[in-house]
């Protein structure tokens, strides 16, 4: 994340990080998670799933565990989990 100036408490506030889990065979390739991810973490993969759609894949480690992809997915095919925060880690 880019800041116009570094916040004074940047080294004190732990930043929540998330990890994205994709259940590829449920995906129908609508692309909502890719289009509406506020951190642009996802993109279409080249592979096909068993129904012949291109499921999303994780292309950056910027996930902040906001759960928006999980809530938006009509297929119950994606969800995020929090990874334990590391105090003092600067935001990428």
């Amino acid at each position: 994340m880019k800041y116009w100036r570094a916040p004074l408490d940047i080294n004190e506030i732990p930043i929540v990080r998330g990890i994205v889990h994709i259940i590829a065979d449920r995906c129908k390739g609508c692309g909502y998670c890719i289009e509406f991810c506020p951190r642009e973490v996802l993109a279409f993969s080249k592979e096909f799933n068993k129904k012949g759609y291109h499921p999303p894949m994780v292309v950056s480690d910027g996930c902040l565990n906001c759960h928006y992809c999980e809530q938006l997915c009509p297929e119950f095919a994606i969800y995020t989990e929090e990874v334990p925060p590391v105090a003092g880690s600067p935001s990428p």
């Binding site: 809530q71 938006l72 997915c73 009509p74």
Partner: peptide
Amino acid sequence: PGCGVGTVFS
């Protein structure tokens, strides 16, 4: 694919 009903159901 892309139907909003799934999202509302979720």
